[in-house]
Computed example of a mutant assay.
Amino acid sequence: MMGTVAVNGEVRRLEDLRLQDFLQSFFFGAGFFETLLLEEGAPMFLERHLARLQASLAAHAGCVHAPPPEVLTAGAVREALRRCLEADASLGPRFTGVGKLVAGDGRLLLSFRPLLPHHERTLGEGCVLDALEDRGYRRDDPSLKHKSVSYLRQYAHFGRGTVFGNEAGELCEAPNGNLFFLVGDAVATPPLAAPCLPGIIRSVLLEEGRLGGLPVVERTVRQAQVEDVRGCVLTNSVSLALAVPRLLGRELPGSHELAERARAVVREYARREA
């Protein structure tokens, strides 16, 4: 994390933040976060991120102390972002990297980090998902539909090439994104009840409705169907769409073309919504 942050719109230094201002979030995970891509100072899909954040806060109004409504508007976040970038020479107005919003304890914290050193290489190579974890996810678990700061279950599997499955033998998501499978006559992504996060890029691709001439649909994908999968894409708000060239031991040569088409769709939507 870089040194300049904003708390409820006020530009601060990271080292000056006080633990007692974030006690519920830190000790109990009573908060939510959003991670978004910044390109030359412009946040991608900011309104969608804020809508999801506000929906999570509303669903947990009895246990998470939400920030004031006025700091959760797109205009307020854009202004806080602008002021942070101008105040820190290591960022600058044309900063390209990652922004993170954390809401809890009555505060909205905005922070920044650079893209990972291997970001561009990963976009080209994709990511292999060869490990299945099917002990932790349970169908219709409502907690997994919100991006809570209680993120250990997912964080523990970062870099391990994990796919989460549920007790019914269905594939759900990856630790760092939603999954889309080229299987049968469609590009299918698991339904939210699987469960999985209502991802921002997931919503864009479902709205588009087609990739490479095939419909994009919500549809249950079972572990037993992996032999029929011809391509797979992992989506998240930083990488947008990553090819999965191997899924649970199966080589998927169609994944790279599918990921390129998905990224093109996402970037066109972002251009229109900017």
Rank of each mutant, 00 (worst) to 15 (best):
E79C: 05
C232K: 04
A89C: 06
Y137V: 15
V98Q: 09
R261T: 00
L240P: 01
L17A: 09
S25F: 03
A87S: 15
L115G: 10
V7N: 08
G41C: 07
F158I: 08
S150A: 14
Y155L: 13
L171K: 03
G212Y: 07
G3H: 14
A194F: 01
G97F: 11
L206S: 08
L109G: 04
A6S: 14
E273F: 10
F180R: 02
F158L: 14
H157I: 00
C196H: 00
M44I: 09
N166K: 04
G169C: 05
G126R: 08
Q20E: 15
G3E: 15
E268D: 14
P67Q: 11
S150L: 06
D140Y: 14
L17C: 07
V163P: 05
V5S: 07
L182A: 15
V149H: 12
D16F: 00
L171Y: 04
L116P: 11
G29I: 04
P190G: 11
R82M: 01
P142C: 02
G126N: 09
E268C: 04
A241W: 07
G169Y: 05
L192D: 05
L152E: 11
L206F: 10
F158A: 10
R18Q: 14
K145Q: 14
R13A: 13
E70H: 15
T4W: 08
L206I: 08
R222Y: 15
R210A: 15
R18M: 05
G92N: 06
L109Q: 03
S150T: 00
H256Y: 06
F181E: 10
E70D: 15
M44F: 11
P175G: 09
P43C: 02
G199Y: 13
R153N: 06
E251N: 03
R94V: 06
G126K: 08
S90W: 04
A51V: 06
L38M: 07
Y137W: 15
P198Y: 12
K147G: 12
A241P: 05
P67E: 12
P142M: 02
H119T: 00
L46I: 11
E120L: 12
T96I: 10
L110S: 07
P142R: 02
V64C: 05
R267M: 13
P245V: 12
Y269I: 00
S255P: 01
A80Q: 02
I200K: 06
L240T: 02
T122M: 13
L192E: 07
A188W: 00
C172T: 11
S111E: 15
P67G: 10
G124W: 07
C84G: 05
Q54K: 14
T235G: 09
F27I: 03
L247W: 03
R139P: 00
S237Q: 08
A193Q: 03
R82T: 04
D88Q: 02
S90C: 10
Y269A: 13
V163W: 08
V233Q: 11
G184W: 09
Q154W: 13
D130V: 03
L240M: 09
V128T: 13
Y151N: 04
H49P: 06
